[in-house]
Nucleic acid binder design. Structure first.
Lengths: 196, 196
DNA sequence: TAACTTTGTTAGTGATTACTAACTAACGTT
DNA sequence: AACGTTAGTTAGTAATCACTAACAAAGTTA
């Protein structure tokens, strides 16, 4: 059942912290080993390369997110807007609990050079995209959302707005209130797109 | 008048291309010198360090953007919405003409480790932010925009949506139509926030 | 024309990188 | 008790990094 060992998870979390605190350039096998209190070669007992640590890390989050968002999607809600609220509630809560992860999964650019890593980041983006897309289609079909805009345009606006909120929170050094700001943005959008 | 020499501009543009094509990790003095057809030490005749190349590159774009957006802001337009259109028209046109720049200025994360670089990226973000902020304040004050939301929430939505559009374009390998998609997103937002 | 400045070169520096070879102690299984 | 596996160690590897010393050719100026 468990896909990763305890040690592997420890390594992935240490790597996430490193990237969050000092950037990907500072994530070396040496610094990582020091963070955990092991020698460098010890890490190679658990991952066959540095790249595999990063890939696993992204895969670990993707699986968690898929389960989390998936369980929301399967639960019935009153309105499409409520489901949208639940999705972002869950997402913002996850980021608040583990701010470091944001530096990794929102940073498509830091992995630009490596195809396998870019793909993993894309998978995570697609996961969110597909969920929002489905929500909007559903909301428009049932007459709850405006049809003044196409599905993809509306998806771009919603995801873009939420990403921007997270980015601002990150830049503030996690000092701003992500949950509050995120709610304000989502409610603002819903005010505009929900038909009364 | 000219802040940078021709050679310096050549180096900065080559650096931008490198980052865009292969990521910051692949930007080394060696690859950069090869791209231009010079030896490595020759680059140090024009910039005192690799970091200064990056800082200058960001400064170069910031100045250009400041002049460009500044001249739009000083021109009178019929409505606040029209001014918003002009700002993003200009911005999207600039990105279309020089797609590589997007990889650099939208990548706050790649410079995460260096304070002077982070500051430069922040300056560029603030520049856009302040312009949009002023536009929304003006539009709300004159009764053209809805006041259902606060200024900062609306700014986040607009900038976030446009950034997302650019990001999608970048991920598509610049295959999608940035101008068209950007227009669709902006018109969608204006449809929702402009009072009739 | 002599001296200086600019812009380039070749050859090299020490530091750091991801990763490996070889070995060992602890532990589970038969 | 014998044996294999797991998870760690020390000591190294070649490659690559940003950057420098020393020198040279060409153009500019006195």
């Amino acid at each position: 059942m468990q896909q990763f060992t305890d040690r592997q998870i420890e390594i992935m979390e240490a790597a996430t912290d490193r990237i969050s605190k000092f950037g990907i350039q500072n994530l070396t096998i040496k610094t990582l080993a020091q963070d955990i209190g092991l020698s460098e070669p010890a890490l190679y007992r658990h991952f066959k390369s540095k790249n595999e640590i990063l890939i696993s890390l992204l895969e670990y989050f993707r699986t968690e997110m898929q389960n989390r968002i998936g369980s929301i999607a399967s639960k019935p809600t009153d309105t499409a807007g409520d489901r949208l609220r639940a999705i972002f509630d869950s997402q913002l809560q996850t980021f608040t609990n583990k701010p470091e992860i944001v530096s990794v999964i929102f940073a498509e650019s830091i992995f630009h050079f490596d195809k396998s890593l870019t793909n993993k980041v894309s998978e995570i983006m697609d996961l969110m995209q597909n969920n929002i897309n489905a929500n909007i289609k559903d909301g428009q079909k049932s007459g709850q959302y405006t049809t003044l805009m196409g599905v993809s345009t509306l998806t771009t606006i919603i995801i873009g707005s939420m990403r921007m909120t997270v980015l601002k929170w990150k830049i503030s050094g996690h000092k701003s209130n992500l949950i509050k700001d995120g709610k304000a943005v989502l409610e603002g959008i819903l005010k505009m797109i929900e038909k009364k």
